[in-house]
């Protein structure tokens, strides 16, 4: 029999550093697969965030830079301008990109920095133990909103990052995908490949938002977590392309 699917050797031969059923494992694999297929594994600078996925530097055999919390797009701007031929991939979570790093991502996107941002949205702060994130859904429970997030009580509305960034002139590509089923994993891979191709063709800023599960902090099994994405998250965070080749895609779901 012929091997038709094998482990990507950019990941070290060790168990992944994440909890069972965590979406980071799948998304890491998709990112390193796309980097490998583009032949850029020796030319990539992987920008890790502060959050669970900081552990990427123990797991991935890439050059990894880990800036201060939320400042990843700012540091990536410097690296890309100093080394314009390298492939700079940002990997940020919702606490890093949509909370403390909002200013950095908006201005990096608006300047049209030629970088690719992978935004992992799991609607909660994972590393610190399940506090409310800017993307936590209305009514979703977290340790800092134990009765469910309530915009009426001053806790605000979940931020839709792709919709927020699509209006900025520097953004070439914005898409939201998910990793809760195998077909969606394949679509996510396609979106990441598009983002990396855009950077190699010097088209500008690409962002791929990926809905991902956090079974431990949601208090659900991995299977139930993926059902939560399908039944709850996608209703508020619709999937698909928001901007392609610099053109806003008109959608009927808002």
């Amino acid at each position: 029999m012929k091997k038709v699917y094998e482990r990507n050797n950019i990941a070290f031969d060790m168990p992944s550093p994440y909890c069972p059923g965590c979406g980071h494992g799948v998304i890491h694999r998709l990112v390193i697969d796309a980097i490998k297929e583009a032949g850029q594994e020796d030319n990539t600078i992987f920008m890790a965030p502060v959050g669970c996925s900081i552990l990427a530097y123990t797991y991935l055999d890439l050059d990894i830079c880990q800036p201060a919390h939320g400042r990843t797009p700012a540091a990536a701007t410097g690296i890309k301008r100093a080394l314009p031929d390298s492939l700079v991939v940002l990997y940020q979570g919702d606490g890093d990109l949509a909370a403390i790093g909002t200013a950095e991502i908006i201005h990096a996107a608006n300047r049209g920095e030629n970088i690719t941002a992978i935004f992992v949205n799991n609607a909660i702060y994972g590393m610190t133990g399940g506090q409310m994130a800017p993307t936590t859904l209305k009514g979703q429970k977290a340790t800092t909103c134990p009765f469910g997030r309530s915009p009426e009580d001053g806790q605000g509305y979940p931020i839709r990052v792709c919709e927020l960034l699509q209006s900025l002139g520097g953004v070439t590509y914005a898409a939201r995908t998910s990793v809760h089923t195998a077909p969606n994993v394949l679509k996510t891979k396609k979106a990441i490949q598009t983002g990396i191709e855009n950077q190699m063709e010097k088209k500008g800023f690409s962002i791929i938002e990926i809905l991902s599960a956090c079974p431990v902090n949601w208090g659900l099994s991995p299977q139930k977590s993926n059902e939560f994405i399908a039944n709850e998250m996608i209703g508020y965070f619709p999937l698909g392309d928001f901007k392609k080749d610099g053109k806003i895609i008109q959608r009927s779901d808002h």
């Binding site: 029999m1 012929k2 699917y5 094998e6 992944s16 069972p20 494992g25 694999r29 089923t181």
Partner: peptide, 16 residues
């Protein structure tokens, strides 16, 4: 199964 695996724990073989 390998596409869904978060831990890259599965290798797949297929008869040719």
């Amino acid at each position: 199964c390998a596409i869904m695996c978060p831990d890259q724990a599965i290798d797949v073989y297929r008869e040719q």
